[in-house]
Design a binder for these strands. Structure first.
Lengths: 230, 230
DNA sequence: TCAAAAGTGTTCTCAATACACCCATGA
DNA sequence: TCATGGGTGTATTGAGAACACTTTTGA
């Protein structure tokens, strides 16, 4: 590192906290763990820790998520910075919150549990340390906003899913019920899901057709955006 | 400050950089100034400096904007964090970029000039230091996105403005021309601007009616969002 | 009188909404 | 055979898009 030209300036601990959402049994879930260091050892917390000097914030969040949960290759987005001077009694510290939507597969479930993390239903989130409840609230609001103009679901649903499942995901985010005929029509007009020749019979006797996302179209839609008021 | 529980962790200089946009003569403008400290003394830069230990990031950005430009009460929003390890040769330093849209009034113009800052047309932005061109690009993209679902203009236009002026603002952001009949119709359906009994004759012989924003409706629309694809 | 910008209306298409019944099947 | 969830169609309404001419007035 070169000569320090900023010697008289203040320095900060910089943390990241990860707000990880999943979807299972028709419910949005938040990933939470038991904090293992003081202050607040033993309390419930988002997955978070400090950024090292030799890494970017986004590298740090990947490293930390993996350290705490075993989850790899999760693509997180920056939510915002939390920097109130009294936010952390441990020491003056800012946190750059990151959020992600992930698929809760069998592998994920196992990894997460082995590492002592837990999924909580988003409408019964327990008290978390510091400003972590605020972060969760802000992340949920962000997702609600984004869903209005970008498709969602690919990251949260299993590879093969049914239209009623996808509808339940939207209902969980919108927090209201949707008309199944209109929902189906709308989703299909985007031409972003592909009908498969299999049925899922877990939730009904008749069975529902499985679909998968057309990933390249999905990605394009995410970039270009659209309007999804339903 | 209490006992430091995080002693073994790394600390960072934390900066803010402000991406300030204005609108005049039918063009979007960016506020830029001549950096007065090393490294890069004398080069063009966004308005930015270091966060002090006793203030939040948003307080810091207000303070810094005022110190460098004299502008008070500018409401900035967080864009994102820039934290690549080599981004600043001065020292390891992360920057939390903030952006704002402001009205370039006579007062603003004077204050800004007295403080040595300058407005640049956004399609002829000069080379700025560090990652400041990237920040500007990202901020512009953010604004383009936001305009699609929230109203814009109140912060950028003079208190009284004409519909053709507002249209030019949208055209500057969308980077394309819009149909004047459709634009007028759409804006009026939002019921967010109020027609005044005066005309502005600066840009035509016939003169164009002046309007002002209905601020409370404007704010509500900004919160609730809508769809503005035109 | 004419150039330059402001202002206005209609048609067409398509998406959003509301709404009710039949289908397939395992228990 | 019946309860359960899956799947389908239509009519109405409103918004988006395309498009051309008249008005005003200062130079």
């Amino acid at each position: 590192m070169k000569k320090n030209l900023y010697q008289k300036k203040d320095k900060f601990y910089v943390a990241v906290d990860c707000i990880i959402f999943g979807f299972s049994n028709g419910k949005l879930k938040l990933l939470v763990f038991n904090r293992k260091i003081d202050p607040f050892k033993g309390s419930l917390s988002l997955i978070g820790s400090f950024v090292n000097i030799g890494e970017s914030v986004s590298d740090a969040s990947k490293r930390i998520l993996e350290e705490f949960t075993g989850l790899k290759n999760v693509y997180m987005k920056e939510l915002k910075t939390y920097s109130l001077i009294d936010r952390d009694p441990g020491y003056r510290c800012i946190s750059i919150a990151q959020y992600a939507l992930i698929r809760i597969g069998d592998d994920t479930k196992k990894i997460v549990e082995e590492n002592g993390a837990k999924w909580f239903d988003i409408d019964i989130i327990p008290n978390l340390i510091l400003d972590h409840n605020q972060m969760t609230f802000d992340a949920l609001k962000r997702i609600e906003e984004i869903v209005r103009y970008k498709p969602i679901g690919f990251e949260l649903l299993p590879e093969k899913f049914t239209i009623p499942q996808l509808q339940k995901l939207y209902e969980a985010i919108y927090r209201r019920t949707l008309d199944p005929r209109n929902f189906r029509k709308k989703i299909l007009t985007f031409d972003v899901i592909i009908k498969l020749d299999e049925k899922d019979k877990l939730s009904s006797k008749k069975g529902a057709y499985l679909y998968k996302f057309d990933y390249s179209k999905y990605k394009k839609l995410q970039e270009s955006g659209y309007n999804f008021e339903i």
